[in-house]
Design a protein around this nucleic acid. Structure first.
Length: 474
RNA sequence: GGCGCGGUACCCAAGUGGCUAAGGGAGAGGUCUGCAAAACCUCGAUUCGCCGGUUCGAGUCCGGCCCGCGCCUCCA
């Protein structure tokens, strides 16, 4: 049983894709005008959890994520730097993919770029003009909200209820385009001097923001598809407008399930450049040496419809939880155990996996899933302690943990981490000191290794080492 | 003003009518250890923002109130 909380209906409802066994997934991607921050990646990690869970549940997922490479911000940025649009956006696109790799996000099947889908957008705009949902004015084209009675069904906002804030007032006044209603939105913007523009059947200009997602999603996933994700801030107006355009054009429902993840805040406050609390992935991973797996665990471990508060204390807690998980696997893989199997592990592994998937099936309740995983860890340690585990039992526990990690993707890839030569020498030197019962020297060497991020553990099978995950908090 | 999210132990965070209120982190005591580390055992909310109500029974439903936060035209 899989159920998700659908923004469209404000209810949790059983999930059933249009085609059995196949899921069409569209997730709003980056606008590449700056380096992506960890709030952006919270959304991408949530979407990755969703996708990995759907795959683990036996669905084939066709995933499309757009890259918005033409909009007011990218145009302004390119202009300010005096470089072509593509050249301006390139490093940000690169940084985005760097983050995708670092956080072990399964790549989408397609990453369409707005600038490469102009003809597809024009086709929809033409159709909307023909059907009377859109009107042209001074070379621009606008969507007439009044023609679409269901407008507001996603955000539950009625256009007439919108209170114009000071910011909006200013912008409406400053708007040099003539619109029949201030709530109508641009499908196509007439070319302006110095701005990138395309020559098309509806004139020379560039697309509005919302139309790209309608064009790219329906071209790559079909005119109706299963799941559309994004941040809550996209509900209005972006996704509301997407629905209006797409359903007006195609004449049938557009997306079955809308899932929106809440924001990440920092130290209890909204992240913003002016507050100086906006972290990019590069700041944390490159700059502070934070282990990306720790960040992934942190981003993952709070339910997607809750505000997530980023603090370095929370990161430390995530690092500790992850360390417990990694140590458990390490223990099972490195302890010398009798051959064969006692059968004690099987029911524990089976129950954990069942509860894990059941938890995620309940609107991606990751807390329930993690509880199942950690219950396996505790029970497994208990069996190890009581010597009720043989080699094959340990192997099935490890396999079970790794099967859950197919969804979580927080464990290191299987296999030994190499230890640099000089550190390995120190480990051996300390072993000699211990054999000679030279405790001061042995302890000093252990301290030095600890400072280098290597933890030593003396077991009855001999010394062994682990590399400590870094948390970036110093 | 509209729409929405949340207030559960020192921290993070599940739980939406009924066994002893998950799980993680931190802490205290113990076992093990040359000392550690890891692990294990034990301890830790008579109580779920506040006040009423419904019910045999409520953190969970209803009403009211208080507090924090997000969005409201191009921010995930």
């Amino acid at each position: 049983m899989i159920a998700f909380h659908n923004t469209l209906t404000s209810r949790q409802e059983p999930f059933a894709p249009l085609r059995p066994g196949e899921v069409g997934l569209y997730t709003c991607g980056p606008t590449v005008y700056d380096f992506p921050h960890i709030g952006n990646f919270r959304a991408y990690v949530f979407e990755d959890l969703l996708k990995r869970f759907l795959r683990a549940s036996g669905f084939r997922v066709l995933h499309v994520m757009n890259i918005t490479d033409v909009d007011d911000k990218t145009i302004r940025g390119a202009e300010a730097k005096g470089v072509p649009l593509d050249e301006y956006t390139a490093p940000y696109i690169e940084a985005f993919f760097e983050g995708i790799r670092a956080l072990r996000i399964v790549p989408a099947d397609h990453y369409p770029r707005a600038t490469r889908f102009i003809p597809e957008m024009v086709e929809i705009i033409q159709g909307l003009l023909e059907k009377g949902y859109a009107y042209g004015k001074d070379g621009s084209v606008y969507f007439r909200i009044a023609r679409f009675p269901e407008y507001g069904k996603l955000s539950k906002i009625r256009p007439e209820d919108l209170q114009a804030t000071a910011r909006v007032e200013a912008r409406l006044e400053a708007d040099e385009y003539e619109k029949d209603s201030p709530r109508d939105f641009a499908l196509w913007k007439a070319a302006k001097p110095g701005e990138p523009a395309w020559d098309t059947a509806i004139g020379r200009g560039r697309p509005g923001w919302h139309i790209e997602c309608s064009a790219m999603s329906t071209n790559l996933l079909g005119p109706a598809f299963d799941i559309h994700c994004g941040g809550v801030d996209n509900i209005f107006p972006h996704h509301e407008n997407e629905i209006a355009q797409s359903e007006a054009f195609f004449g049938h429902p557009f997306v079955g399930t809308w899932l929106h993840c809440h924001h990440l805040i920092v130290d209890g406050e909204k992240m913003s450049k002016s507050k100086g609390n906006q972290y990019t992935l590069r700041d944390l991973v490159g700059g502070r040496g934070l282990d990306p797996a720790v960040l992934r665990y942190f981003l993952l471990s709070t339910h997607y419809r809750r505000v997530l508060n980023f603090t370095f204390e929370a990161i430390d807690q995530s690092a500790s939880a992850l360390r417990r998980l990694r140590d458990f696997v390490y223990e099972l893989e490195h302890r010398s155990l009798p051959p064969g199997r006692t059968g004690e592990a099987e029911p524990i592994a089976a129950e954990a996996q069942a509860k894990f998937l059941e938890g995620l099936g309940d609107d991606l309740n990751v807390s329930a899933a993690l509880t199942a995983l950690f219950e396996l860890v505790r029970a497994g340690h208990g069996l190890l302690m009581d010597e009720k585990l043989a080699a094959d039992d340990a192997a099935s526990l490890v396999a079970s943990v790794y099967s859950m990690d197919e969804v979580l993707a927080v464990l290191p890839p299987r296999g030994e981490e190499p230890l640099p030569e000089d550190l390995r020498g120190k480990v051996e030197e300390r072993e000699r000191a211990r054999k000679a019962r030279d405790w001061p020297l042995a302890d000093r060497l252990r301290r030095e290794l600890l400072e280098a991020g290597v933890v030593l553990e003396d077991t009855k099978d001999g010394v062994r080492w682990k590399i400590r995950a870094r948390t970036g908090s110093g």
